[in-house]
Amino acid sequence: MKKAVTLNSVAVEAGVSRATASLVLRDSPLVSLETRDRVICAMDKLGYIYNRGAANLRGQKTGTIGLVLCDIGSPFYSQLMLGIDEVIVDANIVAILVNSAENPDRQLRQIRRLREHGVDGLILCPAAGSSDALLSEIERLHLPCVQVLRHVSQRNGNYVGPDYADGTSLAVTHLVRHGRRKIAFLGGRPVHSAARERLDGFRKTLKKHKLEHDLIIPTHLENLSDLGSFPELLASSTPPDAVVCYNDMLAQSVMGYLLARGKMPGRDFAVIGADDLPQSAVSFPTLTTIVTDPVGVGRNAARLLLDRIDNPTTSSTRILVSGQLMIRQSCGGQLP
């Protein structure tokens, strides 16, 4: 069996002390670039593998975080992860990704397993149906945690997410300004904070304009062919003239439905989505969408978690990323 390469061997090969080689492994600023390069070259030549686990035990940190998401198949969460990765890679942190699949019991089991693996903290998008008890359990496990995109409490816990209510209000206001008077919301099941805040922004803005505000059509978001009662409503004697959809993927389904029936989105019927997924800029017609900036949310969530890991605090920080409206062809309004 080949003998394991030790740090002493690396130091001898590089012509430095073992202490200096150890400083290089710990990214110490006390080592010159030339010395650092020599040590790294020696490690590569000898095939040295740094035992980070043992080092972490000494330092009481593992250099890992848990990333608990509710739907890893969604392209929206891919954008969120890009933002998180941009921050943690510079901090030499590795994320362990798990998928709760919108199941609170599975979510709790996963969080406990992540704690067993010694993660330093959590970024959590709570599964639908999560309660305040989840935050109490995470606190009991002594895990710094940042909720992202959804929150289980209005007051407790760190949170980073879009201003859903404001974004939805911008969409409704734009439609009203361009003559739409009967506006529906598609995908409105208030099963978590993000959905409730979108619906709140929708209702309040329509009330402000003294327009009908109860055209809310529930759908199963995991089934993009489910348009709920939208087809029947569209075929009624008093159909809506616009729809704000829960997300871009659902809005794309609506536009496909309209096109298949000879109706041009934007000209015959206004459609607005949410999340500004990349494909929304190249669809036909191009999709007007509420910008929720998942990459920016991910960056802010990662920065906040790293701060909480280094500086534990009992006070909660809540960061809302301002909503914007990306106006394109599907809403029929004037392009910017």
Rank of each mutant, 00 (worst) to 15 (best):
R155F: 13
R180N: 01
V146P: 03
V172M: 06
Y164G: 02
N158E: 02
L149V: 13
R181Q: 14
A194Y: 01
Y159W: 10
L149G: 03
N156G: 09
V191C: 08
Q154F: 10
R150E: 12
F185S: 03
A171S: 09
D163Y: 09
G179C: 06
D163G: 06
L170K: 14
G179L: 05
N158A: 10
Q147Y: 07
G167E: 03
V176W: 04
F185W: 03
V172N: 04
L186G: 02
L149C: 12
R177L: 09
G157E: 08
R181N: 12
A195P: 07
R180Y: 12
V176P: 01
H174N: 13
Y164H: 15
P190H: 11
P190I: 01
K182I: 02
K182R: 15
A194K: 00
R150A: 06
D166Q: 15
F185V: 05
R150V: 04
P162Y: 02
V191L: 14
R181S: 13
R196E: 12
P190G: 13
V172G: 12
G167T: 01
H151A: 04
G188H: 04
A165W: 04
G188N: 07
V160M: 03
A194E: 08
Y164V: 04
L170Y: 02
I183N: 05
V176Y: 08
V146M: 03
H174Q: 10
P190R: 14
A194Q: 10
G187P: 02
A195Q: 07
V191K: 06
I183Y: 13
V160D: 05
G167K: 02
V191H: 10
Q147P: 01
V152N: 04
A194S: 15
D166F: 14
H178I: 04
R150I: 00
A171I: 12
Q147G: 04
H174F: 05
T168L: 09
V160K: 13
R189H: 10
